[in-house]
Design a binder for these strands. Structure first.
Lengths: 119, 119
DNA sequence: TTGCTACTTAGCAATATGGTTATAACAGAA
DNA sequence: TTCTGTTATAACCATATTGCTAAGTAGCAA
């Protein structure tokens, strides 16, 4: 998995960090989650997230500027969709990692707990 | 790639965002980069990153709390190493995505540039 | 034009974070 | 013990970000 180390300039590090930063907000993840199965209008995203319209719009702008979602106007509605496939892989990798970590912690604490009704 | 959508609680979204947030700082990425090939002491990391000792120590603490690096004391020195393999995959996926996006933008702007010495 | 709906942007307050400096804690040697 | 080298923590300042409210823009219909 771990390839040989390559040189990384400060500019490159900044770009990578910026990409992670876009994904580092629960509300943006929630929005991406609503878009998981396909494109939606802003109104539909607002309804699905129960967030204020101005916030959703701002976050969508950030996601678009990062190149993660695409914008399409159709009459009064604006449709957004995920256009960067790595979003799925990134989120799933993080979820898997978090799961593994918590599972390991459960194992450790379980061993320390006096048996009460360990199934 | 995109699996069927699952339910995600706010707590889950927060955990995922927190993980991304840990990776969303250039200095932490730089530290992880120095650890790419194996464990190093704090002093070695400081030398490799040319950052202040207090910063490196603080960032290492954040990385450790997130479960991304491991801490091992040996005499006066403390060794850190990457202990979450997903770090590699995440960074490489982001780099690939950034590369693709920039390459696409190059293609678009190239078509708009009056041919000067397009090789 | 006016009016309506859908969405975006501007400005503000509160919170959070990173870098810096200074100090503290830890481990070993003398 | 004292001294030294290594790492961690505390306190502060400056910056950045989020969510909120309010105002503005875009497209369509009458």
């Amino acid at each position: 998995m771990a390839q040989a180390k390559k040189e990384l300039s400060d500019a490159a590090l900044q770009m990578i960090a910026d990409r992670f930063k876009v994904l580092a907000e629960p509300m943006r993840l929630k929005i991406l989650h609503t878009l998981w199965d396909g494109e939606l209008t802003v109104g539909e995203i607002i309804a699905a997230t129960t967030a204020l319209q101005a916030n959703v719009s701002k976050h969508l702008g950030i996601l678009q500027q990062a190149g993660l979602v695409n914008r399409r106007r159709d009459g009064l509605n604006v449709y957004y969709r995920i256009c960067d496939e790595t979003v799925f892989a990134l989120c799933e990798a993080v979820c898997a990692s978090l799961h593994d970590r918590l599972a390991a912690q459960i194992g450790e604490i379980t061993a320390a707990v006096p048996r009460r009704k360990r199934a």
